[in-house]
């Protein structure tokens, strides 16, 4: 529940690599690859962040919105659910769930100014967001509470006595929302993996501390592998790669 990740629906519904990478038949039919899908999700994650800065909501709202977005596409197709509308609507829904509601018309205003796909004009209006909100609730199976690694990160850093690493580990966590890790692992494991990676980088000796925690180091290493894969292959996308992927999205105007 709210205080206990282990009793939460998020915990019961953690997905494996295959499930998060699943590409719907409809998307396959239009020639989209799972690589394209991955790139589109990264781009839309960034788009949610951009909109969030404009409408001024906090980090946790952004993180929840991105988790919604990624969860929706483990079940739905890009063909049926236009990511250019889904991404802002996820932000809209997350702002309600996190008790800092953003008005739909404000979102529309910024969607028109900052387009999700630069080549395509945004023709969506308020009713489209409201309609999509309903569809998203359904697609999310009405599970709206999302746990994030941030809180555990701060507690863990304190426990390890390395609070000077807050900044680097915090931005690591932020970066990881460009992956599907939040759908796959318990948030505190993601936090631990970020501490693990950051301490390797900064040559902090946290081995003894990790040993004392008695967590499953295999899981930490799996997450670490994902982190390295992300930074190696996806942290900065070339515009050609991005354009090629976005071009596969069905034209809606």
């Amino acid at each position: 529940m709210a205080a206990n990740f282990w009793c939460s629906s998020q915990c019961r519904k953690l997905l494996d690599q295959e499930e998060v990478g699943h590409l719907s038949p409809a998307d396959q039919e239009i020639g989209m690859t799972s690589e394209d899908a991955k790139i589109i999700k990264i781009h839309m994650t960034d788009y949610i962040k951009t909109l969030a800065q404009q409408v001024k909501v906090r980090q946790r709202v952004v993180a929840t919105a991105i988790a919604y977005f990624r969860r929706v596409y483990t079940r739905k197709s890009f063909v049926e659910y236009d990511p250019c509308l889904v991404a802002p609507t996820c932000l809209y829904l997350a702002s309600k769930a996190e008790e800092s509601t953003v008005q739909a018309k404000l979102l529309i205003y910024y969607m028109k100014r900052t387009r999700a796909v630069p080549q395509e004009k945004c023709t969506y209006e308020v009713p489209d967001i409201l309609h999509m909100e309903m569809k998203l609730l359904e697609a999310l199976d009405f599970y709206l509470i999302i746990y994030h690694p941030y809180r555990s990160l701060l507690l863990l850093l304190q426990d390890a006595g390395i609070t000077e690493m807050t900044k680097i580990t915090w931005s690591l966590v932020n970066d990881l929302y460009r992956t599907d890790l939040i759908l796959m692992y318990p948030p505190f494991m993601i936090a631990l993996a970020c501490i693990f990676v950051a301490s390797a980088f900064q040559e902090k000796d946290t081995i003894a501390w990790f040993e004392e925690l008695r967590v499953d180091m295999h899981v930490i290493k799996n997450i670490t592998k994902e982190i390295f894969d992300f930074y190696e292959n996806y942290s900065s996308l070339s515009s050609e790669r991005l354009t090629a992927a976005l071009r596969k999205l069905p034209q809606r105007t």
Binding site: M1, A2, Q103, A104, L130, I145
Partner: peptide
């Protein structure tokens, strides 16, 4: 009901769904 103000699902409904979906 859908609120007339054009602000979608009411926050009241969102709260109820979000909390009760997890409560057992």
């Amino acid at each position: 009901k859908q609120s007339k103000e054009g602000d979608g699902v009411s926050p009241t409904a969102i709260r109820e769904i979000m909390l009760l979906r997890e409560c057992d």
